[in-house]
Amino acid sequence: MGTQPAQIPTSFGHELRACLRCRLVKTYDQFRESGCENCPFFKMDEDHERVVDCTTPNFTGVISVMDPTRSWAARWLRIARYVPGCYTLAVSEALPEDLQNLCEDEHIPYAPPKRI
């Protein structure tokens, strides 16, 4: 495998956002400049509007995963197959419908947040 880790957030201020599909946490600028390491098909680095659509500033809890394949926490949170990086425990919003469709077209799994 030898997966390249995702960028580490350059700050932990209000500019932090989480990807609505994989829950990777980075700053807005990092998503804008390099996209999401797990979700390159969103092409956030090509279309900056996409960053706003695909990520959210509303999330709870951050977990830093160094070795997702071995981490129980990563498995429990279902991020075991993503690259090492900082993730949020949960987002409450779902991906916009057109982007859900995009995932479907690309045969990319997407699980919307569970309603409680």
Partner: peptide
Amino acid sequence: DFVLRRRQVIHPQIGEEEEEEDIDEF
């Protein structure tokens, strides 16, 4: 009371050279 930016779970890298075996084991 898991709060953003206060609590972080970190998984320390353990013995990188064992990585391949570990994945198989996993």
